[in-house]
């Protein structure tokens, strides 16, 4: 069992957890992830580690509600327990002095991009961070990123905060302005990572993306997380999760991530119906209690 030391929403539907996991905290490097299982009947899902504190023996993760498991996870609070947490898995990000590094974070991917941005900065790079979110409330870790970046740019799809547009608009501007870029790290939705890859491919800018395929064991045993890299099968859990963006077959990634869409939707719908029934029951109980009080 892994105890939740702290749980706090940082945006609507996005929650940060600090977990007691001393072994993982000692070893975690930027770019790595954990696999967790909340309860006995639960599935195993990979979640990127945002940060760790080896002294306190804690790690933090940032989770966005999407399917049943993430909804359930985000209903947990300080003091609750998670049944299984294993990691740190995957190869760490390659952190070195490249020169100018552009770190692109889309949505909740920003939480995963942040520790890498910090590490790039510590390694002596000039770090330009670009953060994209659908709308104002979903912009996360702005202050933290500002603290480790030489420049920070923010876009929202609807223009409700900072500049309206996409992260690729900002990246294109940088390129057009003649900014020398030695490396781009992009973490976020597949469509965003693919758009970044297409943009930098033309400019021959080295670009790394962090992939999020379906995964079970996370140690190379099952092969469920295989992705096509340069037309060859590689396993995101042991060969990745970070890959050369220009070699990734994003189409196959999208297709394979859709393999269980029907089941995922059913799980979520069942969960939401159960939650509704639960809260209705609670309301009824309250109403009955109120009536009997009268």
């Amino acid at each position: 069992m892994f105890k939740i030391i702290q749980a706090q929403f940082i945006a609507p539907g996005i929650k940060r957890f600090v977990l007691e996991a001393p072994r993982i905290a000692r070893k975690q490097r930027p770019g790595q992830f954990v696999i967790l299982r909340i309860y006995e009947e639960g599935e195993r899902i990979p979640v990127t580690i945002e940060n760790s504190d080896p002294e306190r023996g804690t790690i933090s993760i940032v989770v966005q509600s999407a399917g049943k498991t993430t909804h359930l996870l985000n209903s947990l609070n300080t003091g609750d327990q998670i049944l299984d947490v294993v990691g740190p898995l995957g190869k760490p990000s390659e952190i070195a002095k490249f020169g100018t590094v552009v770190v692109v974070g889309g949505g909740v991917g920003t939480a995963m991009a942040y520790p890498s941005a910090a590490a790039f900065k510590r390694a002596g790079n000039r770090v330009i961070s670009i953060v994209g979110a659908r709308t104002k409330e979903l912009v996360i870790l702005e202050q933290e990123l500002r603290g480790v970046s030489d420049a920070l740019m923010i876009t929202t799809d609807d223009g409700s905060y900072a500049d309206k547009g996409f992260v690729t608009d900002k990246l294109r501007q940088l390129i057009q302005n003649g900014t020398r870029i030695d490396l781009v790290l992009a973490i976020g939705p597949i469509v965003m990572m693919r758009a970044v890859a297409e943009l930098t491919r033309k400019e021959n800018i080295r670009t790394v993306v962090s992939l999020n395929p379906v995964m079970i064991d996370g140690t190379g045993m099952c092969g469920g997380c295989r992705v096509l890299i340069d037309n060859k099968s590689e396993f995101a859990c042991v060969d990745g999760p970070e890959f050369d963006a220009h070699k990734v077959n994003f189409e196959v990634l999208v297709q394979r991530n859709g393999m269980y869409r029907d089941a995922e939707q059913k799980s979520l719908a069942d969960y939401q119906v159960a939650q509704q029934a639960h809260s209705l029951r609670n309301e009824e109980h309250c109403a009955i209690a109120q009536r009997s009080e009268r």
Partner: peptide, 18 residues
């Protein structure tokens, strides 16, 4: 693994699909 470890054949009682 989906069947034996994760009990995916008992979906939706178990969450792992197949």
């Amino acid at each position: 693994t989906r069947i034996n470890l994760m009990k995916a054949y008992k979906f939706p009682t178990y969450d792992e699909p197949m």
